[in-house]
């Protein structure tokens, strides 16, 4: 990277530390923080959307939709997320390739599940065998995002279902009395009112999502935990920068990262909650009204 770092074995002291911290692998490590942040940025809205659908389905008048929504919500309560992560990604990957197999493989292609082996024709591979490493990584990342979104979408559905139930019935009945249709009541009264009740639960969910990111490595994404373990482990002379077991230091660094994220989120969410409570018929809204008067 830098000229001074051309021969790591001969340098020492601060230069060594500088070169060590700017080695290619460390740069990858710093990038992986962005990977985690990106995952959070994509998963949160996706989970919110899935959660909204789940909650709406669970409240639906139609029995099949209701069963579907409730099963989806119950799933998170029953199964630990790690176990879900362990086999769902492979299932999802095979599912996608199977669908593509139906679409693009020549007819008469063999059934993909042959014993333990999963085999589709060359054209049905996702991504294609000839794609570059970038696409393979991107696909892996996308699988991770979808899995996270499904798991956390169920959590969000849980929260939003509760929030929709918490909207005072009188408000909905009043709206009906004004002649609004079911869809109008849902869109104009229920959804805008729901957010204030859902926010505490959703803020918690955000915190949980942050703290679930170390499980990314289970999904085959090279995240910060992967690199911390990889860089921290003791290095023999086969490496350019041999050192003792430094995993403890790297993990303390990760701990600080997570605590900072939590602290920042607490600040932002606190403000958001104050904004949403304004003028609401809740205890918090009442307290604000009094303080202002």
């Amino acid at each position: 990277m830098f000229a001074a770092c051309a021969d790591p074995k001969s340098i020492e002291g601060l230069t060594w530390a500088f070169c060590y911290l700017t080695s290619g692998k460390h740069l990858d490590f710093y990038w992986s923080f962005l990977t985690v942040l990106m995952l959070l940025a994509i998963t949160a809205p996706a989970a919110l959307a899935l959660g909204f659908m789940g909650a709406t389905a669970a409240r639906s008048q139609a029995l099949p939709a209701r069963i579907l929504g409730k099963t989806y919500i119950a799933m998170v309560r029953g199964i630990p997320d790690i176990i879900f992560f362990l086999f769902f990604v492979i299932a999802l990957d095979q599912g996608i390739e199977y669908l593509k197999h139906l679409a693009v493989c020549p007819s008469g292609a063999p059934w993909p599940w042959q014993g333990l082996e999963f085999r589709v024709c060359k054209e049905a591979k996702v991504p294609l065998g000839s794609s570059s490493a970038f696409w393979h990584n991107a696909y892996g990342f996308a699988l991770a995002v979808v899995t996270f979104a499904i798991v956390f979408g169920a959590f969000a559905a849980n929260v939003m279902f509760g929030a929709m139930q918490a909207v005072p019935k009188a408000q909905l009945e009043t709206a009906e009395a004004y002649g609004m249709s079911n869809a109008q009541v849902f869109r104009r009264i229920l959804v805008p009112q729901m957010w204030v009740y859902a926010l505490p639960g959703l803020s918690n969910l955000w915190m949980i999502l942050i703290k679930a990111t170390p499980l990314l490595f289970l999904l085959g994404v090279e995240d910060i935990v992967y690199y911390a373990r990889e860089l921290g482990g003791s290095k023999t002379n086969s490496y350019a920068y041999p050192h003792r077991d430094w995993r403890l230091i790297y993990f303390i660094g990760l701990m600080i990262f997570y605590l900072t994220m939590t602290k920042l989120s607490e600040g932002v969410l606190g403000r958001l909650s104050a904004r949403l409570s304004q003028g609401q018929a809740t205890a918090a809204g009442e307290a604000m009204r009094r303080a202002g008067a």
């Binding site: 790591p8 060590y20 080695s23 290619g24 692998k25 740069l27 990858d28 990889e230 482990g233 023999t236 086969s238 490496y239 350019a240 920068y241």
Partner: peptide, 15 residues
């Protein structure tokens, strides 16, 4: 695996 030197490992350049 990338974690079993000298068979295979990720070097300091991330390769």
């Amino acid at each position: 695996e990338g974690a079993y030197p000298p068979y295979n490992f990720i070097n300091d350049a991330g390769e």
